Computed example of a mutant assay.
Amino acid sequence: MPRNFFNSARISEEHLAIALSQVALGFWEMDLNTKIIECTTQNRINLGLSMDEPITEQRIIEAILPEDRWRRESEIKNAMHPDSPTYNFEIRVRHADQKVHWLHVRGTVIFENLLPVRIIGTTIDVSKKKEIETLRDELLNITTHELKSPLSIVKGYLQLLYKFISEIGDNKHQLITERAISANAKIERLIEEIIPANQHIKSELILKKEPVDLHQLIKEVISNANLVHEEIEINFTCLTGTYIVSGDKYRISQVLTNLVNNAIKYSPGESTIDIELSGDASGIRVSIIDNGIGIAEQQREKVFQKFYRIANTSHLVEGSGIGLYLCAEIIAHHRGRIGMLSNPAGKGTIAFFELPFN
């Protein structure tokens, strides 16, 4: 063995420790049978735990802000399946000095004979990144206020136009005007809800739940999309006899509209979009299938991050990188799941979301 082997190994470990400290990256591992947790010093720092206290799963949960604990529970629960063993989410923790820190948590469940035996993961402090996002949100808040005045004028003219068309009995244009007024109302609601002055955290999004007929809602979204994109054929297939869920109809419509518009935007030259509604005993799944440019596997998870844009497409498609992030937040608040898959047909993407019955 070379004389300088141990010195080289020691120097490498020191360099690694310094690098991990600089990026605030911590590692941890839990044995699911014994519940014993081992972690690095940086992981304790990220969670706001002291160096001498025993680290347990309950202590980690207590470090997380109460309103964010469900996100950890939901993500790890979903990862307890061999087909989807990874998790990825953001939470807030409160340190001993009462300061709140944002953590980006990633990890994998390890299986033996199809049974989960260990969880390994990382935490990274992304508080500085969140501060930058807050500045962006504040700028967006100012912009939305500036939009209110001209939008109210548009609303007034649309109402006058609707009244005039109703009086002359032109049913076709009356329907078009009704949909324009409805779209205007949706924009008004969006402006009211986009980053209020006293909050910028989307995890506080409030749902107005009611029974939602997904079959009818999909047909409405298709009808609205056809008004704007007459050249696109949108096919709808229903593969289940049960399609009523409890949720916020407006928010679910927002997700559907965004995914359909994305499928159209990222399918230049294609003329067909397919939507499938399926289900089983646990819930409903909606799939939007396109034959477009597709998304690389390593980017499918990132597209749901705020402000993320798909590499090499920004010159083809305009966007802010916030639409899919909002979709993910809405589905998460419904205790559902959202994701992207490659189209088995050979090109394109399948965007899907799942909603539980209960």
Rank of each mutant, 00 (worst) to 15 (best):
I187F: 09
K347Q: 14
H333R: 13
V126S: 01
N46H: 08
E233Q: 11
R10K: 15
N258Q: 13
K35A: 05
H229C: 10
V221H: 07
I120H: 02
T177E: 10
T272D: 01
N171A: 12
G292H: 03
A281G: 02
I64N: 07
Q22T: 04
S21R: 11
N198F: 12
V154F: 15
P66M: 06
S84N: 11
A96M: 07
I330F: 04
T143L: 10
L103T: 01
N226P: 00
H229V: 07
A183G: 14
R106H: 04
G169P: 00
I36W: 05
E329W: 11
E146Q: 03
H333P: 00
N33A: 07
L103I: 02
F307K: 09
S223F: 15
H200L: 10
G279F: 09
H200N: 10
T313Y: 12
L161R: 06
I201E: 10
V228R: 14
K128R: 08
L147D: 04
L324F: 15
F352T: 03
N43Q: 10
G247V: 03
S149K: 15
L190W: 11
R3H: 06
F353C: 01
S50H: 08
K265Y: 10
H215Q: 09
P356L: 15
I331N: 01
K77I: 01
